[in-house]
Computed example of a mutant assay.
Amino acid sequence: MIRVLLLEDNRTLNKRIVDILNGWDFVETVYSALSVSEFDRMVDRDNIDIFLSDLGLPDGCGADCIQTFCDKHPNGRAIIISSNTDGGRILEGIQKGAIGYIFKNDTSFEIIAAIKIALRGESPISPAIAHFMIKHLMALSEAEAEAEAEAEAEAEAEAEAEAAHTVETQATPLVENPLTPREHEVLVAISKGLTYVETASVLGMSKNTVPVHIRNIFVKLQASNRSEAVYEAQVMGIL
Rank of each mutant, 00 (worst) to 15 (best):
Q67C: 10
G100W: 05
A151M: 04
I80N: 03
A63H: 05
P211C: 01
E183N: 04
G76C: 04
E160N: 07
N47F: 07
L221A: 00
E176F: 15
R45S: 08
K207T: 12
D64S: 05
T12M: 08
M236I: 03
K192F: 10
E148W: 14
L7P: 08
P124C: 00
N208T: 14
L239P: 00
Y31H: 12
A229Q: 03
E110C: 03
L13F: 09
T85L: 07
E38G: 06
R45D: 07
R3W: 02
E8P: 08
K104E: 04
S141Y: 10
E168K: 12
F103V: 13
D106C: 12
A163D: 07
V210Q: 04
E168M: 12
E122Y: 08
D19P: 03
N14C: 10
R182C: 06
D59T: 09
A118M: 00
E168A: 14
S82P: 04
K15D: 09
A63I: 06
N14E: 09
T172V: 15
D71R: 15
M133N: 02
E162M: 01
A229G: 03
E232I: 12
G93P: 01
G121I: 00
D54I: 13
K104P: 04
T169W: 09
L140H: 09
M138S: 14
S227C: 01
P74L: 04
I81D: 03
T107A: 01
T166N: 09
E156D: 15
R3T: 14
E152A: 07
L137A: 08
E183Q: 14
E198Y: 02
G88K: 13
Q170A: 11
A98Q: 00
N208A: 15
E154W: 11
D46W: 08
E183W: 01
P211M: 07
R215D: 07
A143D: 12
D49G: 05
V197H: 12
K220G: 00
T209G: 07
H131N: 11
I111H: 01
Q95V: 08
K192Y: 12
T172R: 15
M205W: 10
T29Q: 14
A118W: 05
D25Q: 15
L119R: 13
D86C: 01
G88R: 13
L239I: 09
Q234P: 04
N208C: 11
A189T: 04
K96G: 00
I117P: 10
L203I: 01
S201T: 14
L57E: 05
A33C: 11
G100I: 02
K192I: 09
R16A: 11
T195N: 02
I17E: 05
L179H: 03
S126G: 00
E122V: 02
S32F: 02
A143V: 09
T166R: 14
A157T: 12
L179F: 01
A78K: 03
G100K: 06
K15E: 10
I117T: 15
L34A: 15
F69W: 03
T12F: 09
G60H: 05
A159K: 07
R3E: 12
L203H: 01
F103Y: 13
S37Y: 12
N225V: 02
G121W: 02
I129Y: 00
D59C: 05
Q67W: 07
